[in-house]
């Protein structure tokens, strides 16, 4: 039984790794990503809130690629990620890989050095 569970967990982990490792090269829905970023992250990252103000133009495209790259795993080191704030607040569920891909696509498309740099407004 335990062995079976381990296989399932390993399978899930591999699936996650496979999907998410390619995030910087995949294309998500940047408009959905904007919505998810705003409803998930903005509460703390808006001006004068508890965390540093953050929007797409807070980083370069390369920096966003690093943050959302599975191998470097930067996003997992973020305090808010570790504390479980990366979740769909309506459903009270962790963000899915698709959600993360959408957020990345939004942030990357409007990064500091992108063709259309933008704040989160």
């Amino acid at each position: 039984m335990i062995r079976k569970m381990m296989v399932v967990l390993l399978g899930l982990a591999l699936t996650f790794t496979f999907t998410f490792s390619g995030i910087a090269g995949e294309k998500g829905n940047k408009r959905k990503g904007k919505y998810t970023f705003r409803t998930t992250c903005r509460e703390c990252h808006k001006p004068d809130a508890s965390a540093k103000e953050m929007g797409p133009d807070s980083k370069t495209q390369a920096q966003w690629e690093t943050v959302f790259n599975k191998e470097k795993g930067k996003y997992k080191e973020l305090k808010c990620y570790k504390e479980g704030h990366w979740k769909d607040k309506k459903k009270n569920e962790a963000l899915t890989e698709k959600d993360l891909l959408n957020i990345f696509t939004y942030l990357h498309a409007h990064a500091f050095d992108s063709p259309s740099p933008a704040k989160c407004k």
């Binding site: 940047k30 408009r31 959905k32 919505y35 498309a109 409007h110 259309s116 933008a118």
Partner: peptide, 23 residues
């Protein structure tokens, strides 16, 4: 926060019609 409509298409009508457009 503005709502999101899941049945919407992914992008603008004119998306990709020039090389580097302003979103």
């Amino acid at each position: 926060e503005a709502p999101f409509y899941d049945d919407n298409p992914d992008d603008r009508l004119d998306h990709g019609s020039a090389h580097i457009m302003f979103d």
